[in-house]
Design a protein around this nucleic acid. Sequence first.
DNA 1: ATATGACTGGATATGCTCATTTAGTCAAAC
DNA 2: GTTTGACTAAATGAGCATATCCAGTCATAT
Lengths: 232, 232
Amino acid sequence: MARPPQDPARQLERAHRILDAAAELILRWGYDKTTIDDIARQAGVAKGTIYLHWKTRDALFVALLRRERVATLDEVRQADPRTVRELVRALSAGLLRRPLMRAVLLDDSEVLGRLTRVKLDRPISADGFDRFFGELREHGAIRPELSLGEDIVILSSVIYGFLMIAHHTPPDYRLPDDRLAELLADTAHRALDPGRPVDGEHAAAVARATQDYAELASVLAQRKLDDSLKGA
Amino acid sequence: MARPPQDPARQLERAHRILDAAAELILRWGYDKTTIDDIARQAGVAKGTIYLHWKTRDALFVALLRRERVATLDEVRQADPRTVRELVRALSAGLLRRPLMRAVLLDDSEVLGRLTRVKLDRPISADGFDRFFGELREHGAIRPELSLGEDIVILSSVIYGFLMIAHHTPPDYRLPDDRLAELLADTAHRALDPGRPVDGEHAAAVARATQDYAELASVLAQRKLDDSLKGA
DNA sequence: ATATGACTGGATATGCTCATTTAGTCAAAC
DNA sequence: GTTTGACTAAATGAGCATATCCAGTCATAT
């Protein structure tokens, strides 16, 4: 019944269909209770087909998370951020809208099950981050009295705190995601900003560094996702 | 062997000795693995004596946590904070130094065991908090564009985030607690501060409101602790 | 060449018994 | 009146046998 000798585009479409199925089921039942059979049924393929794409269940799940990360970082890149504030705003809006990303970031065992104990890719790319912050500092976009490391602690704490508090707040009391992203970005900005305005040339350099970082993170994430999908 | 007809001060001292024992054991082995017999042995009293002070095991732990809270809030009050920044600095320094407070705040099941599922007093008193923030806003000490509720989300997120990130950072990379408290307070301050300086009269009102809140929180916590200790 | 789903073995869950632990009591000792 | 620790009932845990489930394979079908 399966004839088309090989059509890579069709294969890829099928891989995504399987990941869609996995995403839906995992969000509903959690990782531990989602079986390959469930996913196959939901995706309308046979179980064996899934193993044509990924060697193990975990590999499938890694692919799923990488796809989410790519979507998030792509969205960030497309927002074309030119400041830390814009970058953080786009990123946190993206994370808030993606339950799987939140689950990884917050290490939520309701969703991740035993995967909690496994080393997963960090949702936000660390590669190039130090360099990026170094450039920001050089161009006067970060308070100079903060040592390297301190700024990173501040930024992670703010992002983590907002997401976690939002996660633990009953939906009725919850601020809208957009507003939350706004407040989060604002808090991060105020925590890091030196106060004195950055002049034109430096502002341009900051914009470039920010765009470059968004670009780099996106590309690296895409590369990893490709790895996860190439076994077709 | 137990004669002194009744000396309330001695009773109280014994209650504290028992709580000391409980604190030490819980921090070492966690709640689930700490038995009343262990505590009695460590405190040098018989098991029955413990039941002269508290009706159940849980009541003892509640007393212990309330005592920690009193210590924390007392420390805050003694720091005599006159601004939000000073208040947050003192509070977070106090929390960082108290593993049990951190465990409650972060809902750490390693320490709290099955107590994680139980409703505990929030470590930071919520009573009077809204009123306090209302006064701050009135006197221009909080950004007016933040709606009520938003400021509280910001403050909780920042505190929670910093404590959680610190908790998950291996000690070698960890910033010193004092520095962390400083950065935390600074971040909270920058997030909430309207920027324009508060003039003398308003500054005095803010100082008073802050001291009043610290005082109130401290007194309420003390009252609850007294409840937990009066069964002598 | 591709896709399938029945099949398998290892892992996990379930139900059980029996042994140990431990929260809370209370009669006796002081 | 105050403190104690042996005591009890209930809970927890260890050990095991059996049933169920499910990740991963592969002979077969198209």
